[in-house]
């Protein structure tokens, strides 16, 4: 499904956010990526939909060579990859439904999107997506009127409305409180299990990573330093990934 071959991203000469990465992710997997901030988690996720291009190496996503795509094909690929952001990235002054329908834009003629004239069929897809995250009754609320957890659920619904093959989630719970964080993670897990969408989640909190990650990938200075099931992730493993001993800030729950 996704495969990195000697992939490297260099922001400035000598500053590598991804260093010669080789990685295979199979269809339907639920992968959690951990590492310190600056370890290249965000870069890894953004290379997959080409928001960050590779400097060298190869990357194949859903049969497309991402490192060598025309603009048109790149947008087509992006439409098959849903993305969930730390800051939600909603259009604040638009309604929840308008935000979710953003997920349909690639499949529709531009004029329909510009005037907000979405066909019934696409509205139904959006409604299904909202229903799945329990936000259907707020369809006509403005995004600004929602709480953080609700906004992230709208973010998930927008990604779902794309009917994607892959969902990328970049620190989806970093701006949320602990109970809300679990709710959001459970939504993502359930979507992965029900719909079989390949899901890649960046996480900062190690207890969340072990709880939800079928497969955990550890990054350090852009290099792959761990790859294994979440159940195998002991404290020692994480200390190896972080290169330091763990602190209370590395976990979501109070006791650590």
């Amino acid at each position: 499904m996704i495969s990195f071959k000697n992939a490297t991203v260099e922001y400035q000469p000598g500053v590598k956010a991804m260093d010669n990465l080789n990685l295979e992710i199979k269809e339907g997997e639920f992968v959690v990526v951990v590492g310190l901030s600056g370890a290249g988690k965000s870069t890894l996720i953004r290379t997959i939909n080409n928001l960050v291009p590779l400097t060298s190496g190869e990357l194949y996503v859903d049969g497309e060579a991402v490192h060598d795509l025309s603009r048109k094909k790149m947008r087509a690929l992006r439409s098959r990859i849903g993305m969930i952001f730390q800051g939600f990235n909603l259009v604040d002054r638009a309604t929840v439904l308008q935000n979710v329908l953003m997920g349909r834009v690639f499949k529709l003629p531009t004029w329909r999107t510009v005037f907000g004239a979405y066909p019934k069929k696409d509205q139904q897809v959006a409604a299904q997506a909202l229903n799945r995250v329990g936000m259907l009754d707020r369809a006509y609320s403005r995004a600004t009127d929602l709480s953080g957890g609700q906004r992230q659920r709208v973010g998930i619904a927008r990604a779902l409305a794309q009917e994607p093959k892959v969902i990328l989630a970049d620190e989806p719970v970093a701006s949320l409180d602990p109970p809300t964080s679990h709710a959001v993670m459970q939504h993502l897990q359930k979507i992965n299990q029900d719909l079989g969408i390949t899901t890649i989640v960046n996480l900062h909190f190690l207890d969340l990573a072990t709880a939800y990650g079928e497969r955990v990938i550890g990054l350090r200075e852009g290099k792959l330093v761990f790859d294994g099931p979440g159940s195998e992730c002991t404290e020692e493993v994480f200390e190896g990934i972080y290169g330091r001993s763990l602190t209370a800030e590395d976990t979501l729950s109070e006791e650590a």
Binding site: Q123, Q124, V125, A127, N131, L136, D137, A139, E163
Partner: peptide, 13 residues
């Protein structure tokens, strides 16, 4: 998606 059809809430004026 195989989910049954859902209704959007009534659009406010």
């Amino acid at each position: 998606m195989t989910a049954s059809k859902v209704e959007l809430p009534k659009k406010p004026g």
